[in-house]
């Protein structure tokens, strides 16, 4: 007699991810990624241009408020380059976090009818949003070229440190996914948390060095600001691109641990929530 291929039990192990099963569903993962990218701008006039327009407008706004009215320093870097690099990380983080945190509730109808490894959804969200990151990176590169050719500046430091850029972006994605899954698991049961998320994300943007460098803060506040792992990501990106600020090995280590913890907790909470979430929905 063949062995059982499916065993459904009430209590499973704490971190229960069936990697083989996830691999079986890789086609679904790609379908989701493709769908998110194509559907997002179907029936819109400007189409993928929105990917460009949104960071451009935000940059202009930040230049006006933080650079202009508040007069906060950008450590000698042209303002657009400074803000755009911060936004690159921030936009990726906030979109993945928000979308992931809603992933269970938004798909409740589907999840109530069909089984598939639920982790596919957050994974595909983190992946499909990489496209936006790519487009924004192109925008940033275009801007850098403009500064080099038209204004004769050379903001980017070519060194091995540029290889850190993809690692920082990946870590941002994982961090957002981890937190998103924790929130998704909690909101599945306690709906009021969903309201807190949009509010919290707004506050978090101000607490992260998107529109200001950590170095512009009073010294005694700096280490508190660095407790936010996003600070390391944004500062790290500016460090590896433009050589701004400094990279402290302690904080890098802290962020790495933080990301891994968030991811592990997210996976545990998500796996626990997905099994009974539909009873509350």
């Amino acid at each position: 007699m063949n062995p059982w291929t499916v065993i459904i039990r009430p209590h499973r192990r704490l971190l229960d991810i069936d990697l083989r099963e996830l691999w079986e569903y890789r086609d679904l993962y790609w379908m989701y990624v493709k769908r998110d990218v194509t559907v997002a701008y179907k029936q819109t006039v400007l189409g993928p241009l929105w990917y460009l327009l949104q960071p451009m407008l935000t940059t202009v706004m930040l230049m006006f408020i933080f650079g202009g009215i508040a007069g906060i320093s950008t450590e000698g870097l042209p303002q657009p380059l400074f803000y755009l690099s911060g936004l690159l990380i921030w936009n990726y983080f906030s979109t993945v976090l928000t979308d992931t945190s809603q992933s269970l509730i938004k798909n409740a109808h589907l999840l109530g009818k069909v089984y598939f490894p639920r982790v596919v959804i957050p994974l595909s969200i983190a992946t499909s949003n990489l496209l936006k990151v790519g487009i924004q990176t192109l925008l940033l590169m275009g801007l850098i070229l403009y500064y080099m050719v038209a204004l004769g500046l050379n903001p980017v430091i070519l060194s091995w440190r540029l290889t850190l850029v993809p690692i920082i972006i990946l870590a941002t994605g994982l961090l957002a996914m981890g937190w998103g899954m924790i929130i998704a698991a909690l909101t599945a049961k306690y709906r009021d948390l969903a309201l807190l998320v949009s509010f919290g994300v707004q506050l978090l943007m101000l607490a992260s060095p998107v529109a200001y460098p950590i170095g512009a803060m009073p010294e005694r506040w700096q280490s508190y600001a660095m407790l936010n792992p996003l600070a390391s990501m944004i500062e790290g990106l500016r460090y590896s691109l433009y050589g701004l600020g400094s990279a402290d090995i302690g904080w890098i280590f802290y962020s790495a641990i933080f990301v891994l913890m968030a991811l592990a907790m997210g996976l545990i909470a998500f796996a626990k929530a997905e099994r009974n979430f539909i009873d509350h929905a």
């Binding site: 499916v6 065993i7 459904i8 999840l111």
Partner: peptide, 22 residues
Amino acid sequence: LSRITAPTTGCIKARGRIASML
């Protein structure tokens, strides 16, 4: 059986892929 929600007690075993048309 479709693994949409988990049982509170007991165990379900199956051989082969399960497709559900709920």
